[in-house]
Design a protein around this nucleic acid. Structure first.
Lengths: 333, 333
DNA sequence: TTGTATGCGTTATCAA
DNA sequence: TTGATAACGCATACAA
């Protein structure tokens, strides 16, 4: 393995002091322009690359941020991660990716580890940590962006980014109503999920706003996948044969719903219209293509990173950001 | 933001020297057992967490590795990343995730950046770098694992992991032959792709082995997605109506093929059998469920990280690892 | 404009 | 078994 070239190496090769080289390379004032050019050129020739570790020890900055997600395999977080990394790259930051597997202990361990590595900031997605633990994290990390989690009270250098699930549900229900649908069911995700709670609220309030009452019979919970959608739809149809529309927790559930509706001899969307959430790639692959609520997740990732950098640099901004989902009308509704 | 507790703080609180604390915490010899316990306990109480940056500067190790992928949004790499992170976590390592977007310049910049951060090793997926550049990287990183890329000559601390695409193609063709299929077509991916090249070779040699000649007319290239599969299948059917089996570059292509076969009035698998590659989640969601070549990508990720750690720790192993795909028979063939 | 001393928090090295 | 001192490579503060 090759030896590392240090500032000292460049300095002695240039016949100047270490500090002059440092200033030249970091574009700091106090160096003659001709000298600077010569030094930069020499450093390049020698193949000098700054040792970020030494730099970090001296400055207390690492140009490094932590990204904590439940599972980077989930397209939802994968898209966000991509967005985060995109703008991180542009700003010469690197990201530590950590999975928690929905396990609070592992999440806590991950945060400790990131803290020991001195990250400049933290992007925390769907944290499962209790509120008190979060507060402790806020107090030790210089900057935190929280995605998909709400805060009771605003915190100094913490910013939350959430999808406006209530608004999304409103859009979907309103669309159903405009199509003349009368009996709108909702298949919700696991009760533990924050989004599930918010979407249910949205569904409920939208129905009331539309003048149709909320019927508990028309709501069913399920695992947030295709199989869950199949099961929930089957029992929904059995229990309330009159339903003519189903709002689904996500697109995978919607796929299961579509399959089950068809297997029961009804047509999508003629007999039963279906709307999903997420706009995953699958939504345009299967037939009928799924009408769904779309959010630009990669954009959220970029926004999160930009916001985090703002906080790190001291230029604070809003403390709670809401993202509006857009209804993409395709074939299932 | 809270002040950091350092070794010195613990030392003065314990009334001993800095080094004694260091030894106690790192379980190094030279400390009385009673003393060690007392110090560890005190450190815990004070909330001491080692500063990894200082430690790295002193030891030249960072317990950090770089993971470079074209796009972490692609399920193929997302699965691998998850596997890598899983075992990294268990060994108290953190991973830097970087996307290249298939852009060699960005890939090179990413490697420089990781090198500056002093990573202990590198996992490089589907690198687009020319061979000479790769050699330079091998010489400066302490350890490298290359996924989905082959090396002409074995390199000291570089290890390659590849899916045995030729073998996979053989399996598929053999299965088709056992079913009595006579005219087996192949829809290949983009010619630039290494896997595409290997799979085509496998298809060709398998046909020859089976005693049926290779007909160029039965091969079509396409974009590696559903739309590509649709287009390729359409022209394949038009050109060679007698085909009764299609081996597809991946599952998305297979989905397109299935759709197009059906739209042309034929049945899957009765008239035309279809086999894909990858076993993505979609394979079990759509009907008919796709028969496909499965590789455990998460396992590959874990293997990659384990292997990398072996190299870092000096315990070298094999230099080229091949992973065998498994044929999962479902409904499409 | 340039150079010198000092410190960042830790481990390695030697001495007690 | 312990402790003092010098690195690690860089940047900050101050002196020339």
């Amino acid at each position: 393995m090759k030896k590392r070239i240090t500032l000292a190496d460049v300095a002695s090769a240039a016949g100047v002091s270490l500090m002059t080289v440092s200033r030249a390379i970091n574009n700091k004032p106090g160096v003659g322009e001709d000298m600077r050019l010569a030094i930069v050129k020499l450093a390049e020739e020698l193949g000098y690359q700054p040792n970020q570790i030494a730099r970090s020890l001296a400055t207390n900055f690492t140009t490094t941020v932590g990204l904590v997600v439940p599972d980077n395999t989930n397209p939802f977080f994968a898209q966000i991660a991509r967005g985060v990394e995109d703008t991180a790259y542009k700003q010469n930051y690197n990201i530590f990716l950590v999975n928690t597997g929905e396990n609070p202990a592992r999440e806590q361990a991950a945060l400790d580890s990131l803290w020991q590595k001195g990250v400049d900031g933290l992007i925390l997605c769907s944290s499962r940590l209790p509120g008190e633990s979060l507060e402790i994290e806020f107090s030790r990390f210089p900057a935190v962006v929280l995605i998909n989690r709400e805060l009771k009270d605003p915190v100094a250098h913490a910013i939350t980014i959430n999808v406006d699930d209530r608004r999304g549900a409103h859009r979907a229900i309103k669309y159903f109503r405009e199509q003349g649908r009368q009996h709108i069911a909702y298949i919700d995700g696991p009760a533990t999920s924050l989004s599930a709670k918010r979407r249910l609220e949205g569904y409920q309030s939208a129905l009331e706003e539309a003048g149709i009452g909320f019927e508990p019979d028309l709501v069913e919970c399920c695992a947030p996948d295709t199989e869950g959608g199949r099961i929930a739809t089957a029992s929904l149809i059995a229990r309330a044969p009159k339903i003519d529309a189903i709002y689904c927790f996500n697109d995978l559930v919607a796929v299961g719903a579509i399959q089950m509706v068809r297997e029961s001899g009804k047509k999508v969307p003629e007999d039963i219209a279906i709307i999903g959430v997420d706009d995953i790639p699958l939504a345009t692959i299967i037939r009928p293509q799924i009408t769904t609520l779309h959010v630009n997740l990669r954009h959220i990732g970029r926004l999160a990173m930009r916001t985090l950098l703002d906080v790190i640099e001291g230029g604070s901004s809003a403390t709670a950001i809401q993202i509006e989902p857009v209804l993409v009308v395709r074939e299932s509704a």
